[in-house]
Nucleic acid binder design. Structure first.
Lengths: 170, 170
DNA sequence: TATTGTTATACTCTATAACTATA
DNA sequence: TATAGTTATAGAGTATAACAATA
């Protein structure tokens, strides 16, 4: 049988037809319903799907604050690390320095951060949150992260962090 | 003290200066080093960082197969669900139908899948892997997923799947 | 009237190369 | 020579609106 190696795992998959019918399967997304073989084969898919949800929810939550994911991330990191330089921030955000420029510009235009020359190294700028910058940062974080990960519980949260770190570290 | 609410957690954060110095901190990325408060505040950041790694590794791994993440995902889903329609595939991939068109076109151009009219509904097309399409699909999955998640072990993998599903389901 | 797939189009996020001003 | 930040630009991935063919 041709399709034996791959088992269907898409909800409401259209029944195949002709000689290509294998096993019409209507298994839902939950991991418990999916064969272990399939799970092991396609973990990156789960990561993407979960991340899509996080991204969508985060975008929606940040809208009232007029923040997008990159500006939000930058603001939180700057609030947590006042005096940070742009090269370091780019490293922390895992993006290239040029992409940071518009982000920094926007945050500064909105008076959420300051962009000050470092006295000891006149090439560098230090990023510092303004007094006006902290409240939206704190509120956005609290409103979003609390809501998004509320259902996880401490154990699950810890397990997830561990796994994500392991994946990241390789 | 002004910066008390946010603790630095960026590696090698530049020491702050002037009256904005709070607590220059050089805590590294690993979760164990970061305060629980910070963890709870910014889980989405960990997800993004981990996903960046997955995405980069996956892209590199798929290059020899001349596949990108979307074409790879589509191919795996089609192999796993022969006869799938484009609307369903778009739902499974969590993207809009128009974006699928170029992906399907590419896979079909490369003779990895077929794009056949459904006899019972002449609006719809059924996506079916070709005999040539399965091997690169299987190889790519095995080479990538095995390598990326090898370090996790079964427990961690399960925990991660559970957490990701929970996040996705809300 | 609703649905499948399509076209055209625009937007967000990101990467690369080359520049400037400092070190 | 190397580094911090910048500019210009290109590409990938995605979304929205409007269309044709079919149900």
């Amino acid at each position: 049988m041709r399709g034996k190696a791959c088992k269907p795992f898409v909800k409401n998959a259209r029944p195949a037809f002709g000689d290509l019918i294998t096993q019409p399967d209507h298994s839902p997304f939950p991991p418990t319903q999916i064969s272990d073989a399939t799970l092991r084969r396609f973990l990156s898919y789960y990561m993407k799907r979960a991340f899509n949800v996080v991204q969508a929810n985060l975008t929606a939550t940040l809208k009232p604050f007029d923040l997008r994911m990159p500006t939000y991330t930058a603001l939180v990191l700057i609030c947590g690390n006042p005096g940070l330089g742009q090269t370091q921030l780019a490293q922390a955000m895992d993006i290239e320095r040029p992409n940071l420029v518009v982000i920094i510009d926007e945050l500064e235009r909105r008076k959420l951060i300051n962009h000050t020359r470092v006295p000891t190294d006149r090439r560098a700028y230090a990023l510092i949150p303004t007094l006006a910058g902290r409240p939206p940062c704190d509120q956005a974080v609290e409103v979003y992260e609390a809501k998004q990960f509320a259902g996880l519980g401490q154990e699950m949260r810890t397990a997830m962090i561990d796994a994500l770190f392991k994946v990241r570290a390789g």
